[in-house]
Design a protein around this nucleic acid. Structure first.
Lengths: 271, 271
DNA sequence: ACCTGAACACCGTTCAAGT
DNA sequence: ACCTGAACACCGTTCAAGT
């Protein structure tokens, strides 16, 4: 994980907004939200704290830029002809992500057939959803950051990006036009909520054999649920066993299937 | 809004975890996340910064306690026989909230009939959902805080609280047992995502005539969407008009209706 | 047991000064 | 135009000292 890290920036390269965003992502990935500091950032960029302020308004704007860059990379492939890497900041974290690659994964998971839905559109929605899911898995800080930015400024760049890439697939489903907004919103909100919550599971199992630690984690949560007050939490307790060995990704897609089914029932295709 | 604020705490009352949480909520409501400071908190409580550390581990734990208290109040009425106010911290922000009162509001909004669903269970889900929706509207900082805590520690107290109150209603719908987890998760994730995002709209219109500013806000966002790049955002641009004059609450409930419909289609009642 | 308040380490941000 | 780095105001947290 540290093998490819640029030890110290070449002093010859000029400072730029892009390089700052890239370095910020590296810091966030390595040490979480607390790891992003103007001092740590300037040290990594071999400059002074003040220099960063020439390229970036303040820390809030930097976090917005960072979030936007990662989201843009995550939904790339669905939003326009320009493939992943368009922002120049996505390569910082690790393996390539993006909706295009996620589409294959979506096909591999045996999704429940829903009836009259165009299969391509359904795969497209899963691809976008998994693109975001994977991005949060790779950058756990993204979950909180997404919530912060979306609730602070829904008119920002991130919301339209998500709305556009999800909405196109909704349109492709044949949903009647006056239901586009409702259907797209519902999907977007579910995806954000679910991806955000599931981030913790993978955040706790970093740089470890993926399955071993995951099972251990679920076991801990499951046990905690079993120890809840029987009077106050009978339902949650009864579901604790089901938690053990459940698959986040599968669960996530099951939710999407649910919503897609609801869309086709409440807003049947016009054609 | 400032009329009922306790000017300075009576020195006679002993410091307690509950009073600290209550004061923290007041600070968050008044000045947002940046307003909660151990110095501001100790000033309001007429004590020193160090005193707080005797009752609370650190700032993170304080935020967890604050979040838990507000959520407990929001879902009160659905989770057990104990009515709202059980935590002693809910009365800090303003008017009473809670799922019980929200149930009436749910009935007032003309929800789309979905078919074979037991009406009471459907109302119950709407009540829980609106209880959380209102809590975030009243405490905008809750959206980010919820995301932070849930993604950091899903084994905490907040997740079971939400899961329990939503899950009971799912069970009441007649959903077969082996689908409880999927259905409850989907609803919970949607509610968290949607309520969080919609918080911004109301956050920008505080202490102002509710409708005037809301319309103005939607107008701003709508205009911003219309000015997006036509090549990159054709879908989002086409929906900009639909944004003007749309009702957050109605939209929120429409999403719930969608998911409930999906649940009954994919997981039909066993009976 | 509970509280005080000075002190420490650290942070975001500014800005006169440099090139 | 772009960068430097000391300085400022502020923050979370600690801890010896009090009652």
């Amino acid at each position: 994980m540290a093998t490819r890290t640029r030890r110290s920036q070449r002093r010859t390269e000029a400072l730029s907004r892009e390089r700052i965003v890239e370095a910020a992502i590296e810091l966030l990935d390595a040490a979480g939200e607390g790891g992003l500091t103007f001092r740590a950032l300037s040290e990594r960029l071999a400059t002074g704290p003040g220099a960063i302020y020439w390229h970036v308004e303040n820390k809030g704007e930097l976090l917005d830029a960072v979030t936007d860059a990662v989201v843009a990379d995550a939904v790339a492939g669905g939003v326009s002809g320009v493939a992943s890497g368009a922002t120049g900041a996505g390569g910082a974290g690790g393996e390539a992500s993006g909706a295009a690659e996620a589409a294959e994964a979506a096909g591999a998971v045996g999704a429940v057939g829903v009836g009259g839905l165009p299969g391509a559109a359904r795969d497209g929605i899963q691809a976008v959803a998994l693109g975001l899911f994977d991005a949060i898995e790779e950058h756990p800080w993204l979950a909180t950051q997404l919530a912060t930015q979306l609730s602070r400024s829904p008119w920002g760049t991130v919301a339209p990006r998500l709305f556009e890439s999800i909405g196109r697939q909704v349109r492709a489903l044949g949903v009647p036009e006056d239901s586009w907004f409702t259907a797209t919103s519902a999907l977007m909100h579910y995806i954000l909520g679910a991806a955000g919550q599931n981030a913790a599971n993978s955040a706790s199992s970093r740089a470890l054999p993926p399955d071993v630690d995951r099972d251990q984690f679920l076991d801990t949560v499951s046990t905690a649920w079993e120890e809840l007050d029987p009077d106050e939490y009978p339902f949650t307790r009864s579901l604790a066993p089901q938690l053990r060995g459940h698959d986040d990704r599968e669960q996530f897609l099951a939710g999407i299937t649910l919503i897609l089914a609801g869309i086709t029932v409440v807003h049947p295709p016009a054609g």
